[in-house]
Write a protein that binds this DNA or RNA. Structure first.
Lengths: 219, 219
DNA sequence: CGCTATTGAATGAACGTTCAACAAACTTGT
DNA sequence: ACAAGTTTGTTGAACGTTCATTCAATAGCG
């Protein structure tokens, strides 16, 4: 029964119990199997048979729950994007209200242990690289960025006033966000060679350089 | 004859003349058709029939010149990577030897008009996102990074001494490179919405912020 | 007449989707 | 409470399509 990469779902125990699980749970199970397959095999090599096998279910199951492969992938990208957005917004809300804490919350949220796994990064990049042509995915990726970036820009504007910095706040926000995406890309590509902690170090050092009045160098 | 997205190759004129073209040219022609298809349709939807049609040749042609689809894609990724590396190394060599000019050359080379087209970015990301699992591509991507990053780190070390900066040069180099990759990603995703010039502005502003002794703010 | 490049049809494998059959879980009638 | 009927979830085989690859036939070249 325990093959490969099972998840936090409590085991279904009996066949009867498994069947009673609600529809939403089964969908999430299939989405998780999809993420696994995307991460392990890539977009092109991800087949519905892989997904079904990964979830320990039979061949026709995906079309029953998602109607089509395309729809499954769309739901998967939405799942990842919702998780991402919920995470950084919660982290920012929890943080202290001063500018430095808010900024720190924004950048560390993106490198959170829950979000920033090799598995999810690989799946995310596989999807957006491929989905570029499809308008539906495109919109989702844009939306994901837009919210985060506008918040980041506001904080940079505030920091500029407080610290009397010379930088252009829009450029600075763009640069920080681009840096994060670049670090994700590195972690995705060189999973074993470039860890979350290293990326976090780079980000913190950079904050010290750009916002010296808000962050001190503590080594 | 003139369909879609032809390239800088001078037209072959007659059938006989076309046949006389050397093998290397035909290979490059097919690689260009591959880049076109990757950019337009993505990795998963790129078929050998697309490539052959794009080059205006017949179905079996790719297997004759490249033996297999996988090999064609490997050669395509190598083509892009060679072009990229040659470009920034030439740009750096041409630049003045002072630290500021060298740094400027490194970062502007990556945003060069020749390298930084929507077409090539889209193809590049499609390949590396998918190629993550395949060791051969992986090595190429790593090699591409390694050379650029070590050069960038050296320059950052020099700049630190000259400008008496507080930053960690390794982190700074990592941050700059990550930023560039992030900007590529944006340009790839939002082709029409995020142009080369915008990215260049962000990079220059950031250099002013990080290296105030080397770059002045000129607005 | 070899030799090399090219063509286009044939082949076979892989895959998404459909669907009839089945099983478990609910609902209803008595 | 329980049998009969209905709904819902699941299975696996079958189907049709798409695609990479192979190859015999062809055409230009020295």
């Amino acid at each position: 029964m325990s093959e490969g990469h099972e998840h936090e779902n409590s085991a279904p125990a009996t066949e009867a119990a498994r069947r009673r699980e609600p529809k939403a749970l089964r969908r999430e199970q299939l989405i998780n199997a999809t993420i696994d397959s995307l991460a392990k095999r890539g977009y092109a090599a991800t087949t519905l048979a892989d997904v079904a096998d990964g979830a320990g279910l039979s061949r026709g199951i995906v079309n029953f729950h998602f109607a089509s492969k395309e729809n499954l992938l769309a739901e998967t990208i939405r799942f990842l994007q919702d998780e991402y957005t919920a995470n950084w917004q919660a982290t920012v809300k929890k943080a202290a209200p001063d500018t430095a804490s808010q900024l720190l919350a924004m950048v560390t949220a993106d490198l959170d242990k829950k979000i920033c796994t090799h598995r999810k990064l690989a799946a995310w990049f596989a999807l957006i690289a491929e989905a570029r042509s499809k308008p539906a995915y495109h919109e989702m990726a844009w939306e994901r960025d837009a919210k985060y970036r506008s918040t980041l820009t506001s904080i940079c504007k505030l920091a500029k006033e407080e610290g009397d910095y010379a930088f252009d706040p829009q450029s600075t926000a763009d640069a920080i966000y681009a840096m994060q995406e670049g670090l994700w890309l590195r972690m995705m590509l060189f999973g074993r060679g470039y860890k979350r902690e290293a990326a976090l170090g780079v980000v913190l050092d950079t904050l010290c350089t750009i916002f010296p009045m808000h962050f001190a160098i503590d080594k």
